[in-house]
Simulated scan of single mutants.
Amino acid sequence: MAPEASRLTVMKEISDTLYPKPVVIFNPTWGFDEESSFGEMSGFVGSFEVVYSFMGLEVRGILSNRKGVMFKCVKDGVLSGEKWYVFVEEDGELKVVSRFKTGPSIVEVENVLYNLMAVHEFTNS
């Protein structure tokens, strides 16, 4: 539960010992954008599939702020190409504004939100 990136070596040792049984990680305390900087552990971390993720987002612009969430959920425990969704709050509801086939980087998500804000600010000015 909530393992830190500094524990990756121990997690890999445990995983290797348990192989071929699956290993489930709950609430890792690293961001998905950090995973590319794990060096030799990047392959190990990259071997995991995200089955559920719900992450709040907020981007501040010049004239407004945007709140939303990034969401992925595997149905019935079967991995079958579920997408990552970016929702933005509009008029009190969450609306899908983008879909990604793989986990997007934080920069990709920010770009979606900033572009949406720019369009919104341009059309309302």
Rank of each mutant, 00 (worst) to 15 (best):
M1E: 04
M1C: 03
P3T: 01
E4N: 08
E4C: 02
A5D: 07
A5V: 08
S6E: 14
T9G: 08
T9Q: 08
V10I: 11
K12A: 11
E13M: 13
I14D: 01
I14H: 02
I14R: 03
I14P: 02
S15L: 01
D16S: 14
D16A: 13
L18V: 12
Y19M: 09
Y19K: 10
P20S: 07
K21Q: 13
P22G: 12
V24R: 07
N27P: 02
D33R: 09
E35Q: 05
S42L: 06
G43A: 06
V45D: 00
V45Y: 00
V45W: 00
V45H: 00
S47N: 13
S47C: 07
S47H: 09
E49L: 08
V51N: 11
Y52F: 15
F54P: 00
M55A: 10
L57F: 00
E58V: 09
E58D: 05
V59D: 01
S64I: 03
S64G: 11
S64A: 14
R66G: 09
G68Y: 03
G68M: 05
V69T: 06
V69Y: 11
F71S: 08
K72C: 02
K72D: 01
V74L: 06
K75F: 07
V78Y: 08
L79H: 11
L79P: 05
L79R: 11
G81K: 07
E82Q: 13
K83W: 03
W84I: 04
Y85S: 12
F87P: 02
V88I: 15
E90Q: 12
D91L: 10
D91H: 10
E93K: 14
E93C: 09
E93D: 12
L94A: 09
K95V: 13
S98L: 04
F100T: 04
T102F: 08
P104W: 04
I106V: 14
V107Y: 09
V109S: 02
E110K: 15
N111V: 07
N111R: 15
V112H: 07
Y114E: 10
N115K: 14
N115G: 15
L116H: 15
L116F: 15
M117I: 15
M117Q: 14
A118W: 07
E121R: 12
E121K: 12
F122I: 14
N124P: 03
S125C: 06
